[in-house]
Amino acid sequence: MLISVSHQTTYTYEAPVSYALQRIRLQPCNSALQTVRNWSIDVEGGTLETRYADHHGNQVGLICAEKGAQSLKISVGGEVETNDLSGILGKVYGRAPLWYFQQPTALTEAGPLLSDLADTVSGYANELEQFHALSTAILDKVPWVLNETHSETTAEEAVGQASGVCQDHANIFVAAARRLGKPARYVSGYLFMEGRINQDASHAWAEVHIGDLGWVGFDVSNGISPDERYVRLAIGRDAHDAAPVSGLRMGEGDESLIVSLQVQQ
């Protein structure tokens, strides 16, 4: 499927900004699952200072807002050809070893609630079935509810309040999978949805490393493994590592954020 993405992130600053940086992971990479046909990154009100590959192999850019800027607009987009491999990325490895993806992070530390949740699927012999069951169990326990969690909500907290969005689902999944002894990671990206070109936010899911298959994706929020409607952007051990945009600003006043996202065929 050829997916076309247009994604604008606009920060508006209440007071002219003295110094602000945004780190972006908004560049999809080629893999068995996708081929990037064309992709561009444009910045208004700032400069793309540098680009590099991070320790997870993500293509990262660092943007510096112009001094005195009142807004910063980051526009990315392009076309990505995708394949339906039932979410199986395969045995593709960067430098980060598998054990590294078994390590919990602050966001994905398993507390008692998460451990209980993971234990409910500990009896499966077949790993694929086990993680589909985990995915179902998470969505049962933590139904999709908008605006009750935020970017700093931990997996354990999201289980506790029994609500969350795709970010929380993915954090919970990787935390539980690690609890079950498997390397697991967080994936950020885009999802094509029939009849919903305009979307409010990018998407997130998880990947777990299963013996013979290698990395396999699970989208808890939609109860499936990713297919040709999914575009992978970045990976990491949790939502922070793979955040499409993260930044820091010096100066007075508040900032507001508007995201405009179109995903179409």
Partner: peptide, 17 residues
């Protein structure tokens, strides 16, 4: 993230070489 002693983004420049 609370550090006032460092240089924000220096790791990005570092990894860029």
């Amino acid at each position: 993230p609370q550090s006032m002693l460092g240089v924000p983004g220096i790791m990005d420049i570092y990894r860029s070489g």
